[in-house]
């Protein structure tokens, strides 16, 4: 049974997917439906800036300490978050899957080399690395994506490698060799389709993970200052000391981040069952 059938049956993972898809749509359409420019300082009829106003009919989620509309910030932030999420996830899975496929299939020296590299990457602690990298380079969104994806491919690499190790021994792969297929053909045409469920799940979980990681980086002040993001909203809210006062500023981005994290866990639940056929009901 393939991934789609599975998701249809398991309500938890379905909910996770729905949440991610919702935020995906928000990311795409967000800036188009945002009522205000997120950088614009909103003023009242007398021209006074609307600092930290509570939610009302003109500003559904209120304004921040500079008078910027929170709802618009949220919607624009969704797009940043989406870009970071998908780009990171794609890079992570691309590197990880290829490492895993080649190491698992070829074995021997190629496996050793690839896995030693993976081991080295495993030994690098995540947060300090991010901090150092972003501190050395300009804080820009591309570097954030780079920082996130340079380390995270290590886990999919290992897991996919072990899957591929098992797959390579199976008779249908031997049959592919006897049909005359070249090694690369076997890896990408015969083995890769069999790890797709795992790859898709790593993609989904990494999107969600990257989003929360980006929020963390931005909260630490290492994010791109020129882009709106949920983490940056939290960062500012904290820095100006409004965290105890402006619930309308704190909660929306916080809840969005939480929802996305919950989505990870819901999908990971499915991840285990798809990856381990014995857990599936045959």
């Amino acid at each position: 049974m393939n991934a789609i059938d599975f998701l249809r049956k398991d309500k938890f993972s379905l909910a996770g997917v729905v949440i991610l898809v919702f935020f995906g749509c928000l990311g795409l359409a967000g800036p188009l439906i945002a009522p205000y420019d997120p950088w614009y300082v909103n003023r009242d009829k007398e021209g006074n800036p609307l600092f930290l106003t509570t939610p009302d009919s003109t500003h559904l989620l209120g304004t921040d300490n500079m008078g910027r509309d929170i709802l618009s910030e949220l919607l624009h932030g969704a797009r940043t978050v989406l870009i970071v999420g998908f780009l990171t996830a794609f890079i992570v899975v691309f590197i990880g899957a290829n490492f895993g496929l080649l190491a698992g299939y070829y074995g021997g020296r190629i496996d050793s080399i690839l896995m030693r590299i993976t081991d080295v990457v495993y030994s690098i602690p995540f947060t300090p690395f991010i901090i150092v990298l972003v501190a050395l380079l300009r804080p820009s969104i591309l570097y954030v994506v780079l920082a996130l994806s340079l380390l995270m491919w290590r886990a999919p690499a290992r897991v996919i490698r072990s899957q591929v190790l098992g797959l390579s021994k199976r008779p249908f792969i031997k049959a592919a060799k006897v049909s005359g297929a070249s090694d690369l053909r076997i890896v990408y045409l015969h083995i890769a389709p069999n790890i797709m469920p795992l790859v898709l799940l790593y993609l989904a979980t990494n999107v969600a993970w990257a989003i929360t990681a980006e929020a963390g980086i931005s909260f630490l002040g290492l994010g791109d200052p020129g882009l709106v993001s949920w983490g940056r909203m939290l960062h500012l809210c904290y820095m100006v000391g409004a965290i105890r006062v402006a619930w309308w500023w704190l909660w929306p981005p916080g809840i969005c981040i939480i929802l996305v994290t919950v989505a990870i866990y819901l999908i990971s639940h499915a991840f285990e069952e798809i990856a381990n056929p014995r857990l599936r009901k045959r």
Binding site: R170, P171, F172, A175, A176, H190, P193, N194, M196
Partner: peptide, 9 residues
């Protein structure tokens, strides 16, 4: 093994 000899995909 007829159950392993074909690529399931």
């Amino acid at each position: 093994d007829p159950y392993e000899t074909l690529n399931p995909r």
